[in-house]
Design a protein around this nucleic acid. Structure first.
Length: 303
DNA sequence: TAACTATGCCAAG
DNA sequence: TTGGCCTAGTTAC
């Protein structure tokens, strides 16, 4: 379920917590036993993201590649040095819904004989558990979890479109979008066209641009496509900063202070069918199906 | 307790 | 275009 911003946050937290450190790895579920054995005892150099793909580079040259798919999530835990290391506020869970520690002071965690923080017993579905001295991470539900060679990892990236969060050149997206007559709503979700946009950013960016998602992509002027790219980049960067997707402008959040961290009306159209549009006020937000996914739009504002 | 849903993607037809 | 798949939470009965 996570869109690109979550995966970039994940890569940052991973680098903060595990980067340059020796790790121990297991696969309690048993579906990644070989990979976990190969990773075990290595130094994790750094983690990175492209679109919705996560990569972690290991000292022996192998690359851990994870795609969370629809249901994947990472859970984290650790001691005070784990909290201090995380530049994004040490979320406890990154996946379908991000969760932070509640305010209560955490008890001093248990440690093993080597003095490493001891995680709780894993739930049976943990595909991969990563431990370092000060923190740990559990992966569940991922659609992809595998070890690649650097060449294989490059191939994965090469098949993806440019990623706004990596400051990539948008030209490949503009070119592809400019020559296909598939609906612009489909093209924005196509990971080979642009990396990291999912169902929420797709719906919200098209609303903000006043574009009908069903409009043929090659009918959208290049300058408008360029605007879609930069608006998505902005929304996704804000998503990385906040750890959640907020796409409404403050003036469209009636009665909610602009600086409020968790605004009530965070989105314009996503899952707002049947509610009045925050811009035109009409009961015009509909949900339809596009390429087997829910498509939300305002029939008044988007044409 | 079962049914349903979800920010995704792939392969088969 | 459809079915399958990965999992957990929420809602319905």
């Amino acid at each position: 379920m996570p869109e690109g911003h979550s995966v970039h946050r994940l890569a940052r937290q991973f680098t903060d917590v595990f980067g340059g450190r020796r790790i121990r790895t297991t696969s309690p579920q048993g579906r990644f036993t070989e990979g976990a054995a190969r990773m075990d005892g290595q130094v994790l150099e750094a983690a990175r993201a492209h679109g919705k793909h996560f990569f972690a580079d290991l000292a022996d040259g192998h690359v851990l590649n994870v795609h969370l798919g629809m249901y994947g999530a990472w859970s984290f835990g650790g001691d005070e040095r784990f909290d201090a290391a995380s530049s994004i506020g040490a979320p406890r869970r990154i996946g379908e819904r991000e969760v932070h520690a509640d305010g209560a002071a955490a008890a001093e965690p248990d440690r093993d004989d080597d003095g490493w923080v001891l995680p709780p017993p894993p739930v049976p579905t943990v595909r991969l558990r990563v431990r370092a001295e000060h923190g740990w991470a559990d992966l569940i539900g991922a659609s992809t979890c595998r070890l690649l060679t650097p060449a294989e990892a490059s191939d994965v990236v090469a098949k993806l479109g440019p990623d706004p969060l990596n400051d990539d050149d948008p030209a490949p997206f503009l070119d592809l979008a400019g020559r296909t007559r598939r609906p612009i709503g489909t093209v924005l979700m196509d990971q080979a066209a642009v990396g990291g946009i999912g169902n929420i950013f797709r719906a919200e960016a098209l609303f903000r641009a006043g574009l009908d998602p069903w409009r043929p992509s090659n009918d959208v002027p290049r300058e408008v496509l360029r605007g879609l790219w930069s608006d998505n980049a902005e929304l996704m960067r804000e998503g990385v900063r906040l750890g959640r997707i907020v796409t409404t402008r403050p003036e469209h959040r009636p009665g909610v202070p602009a600086e409020q961290a968790w605004p009530e009306h965070a989105n314009y159209v996503y899952q707002r069918q049947g509610s009045p549009c925050l811009v035109c006020g009409q009961d015009a937000i509909v949900v339809e199906e596009m390429a087997a996914r829910k498509l939300y739009r305002c029939t008044v504002c988007q044409r």
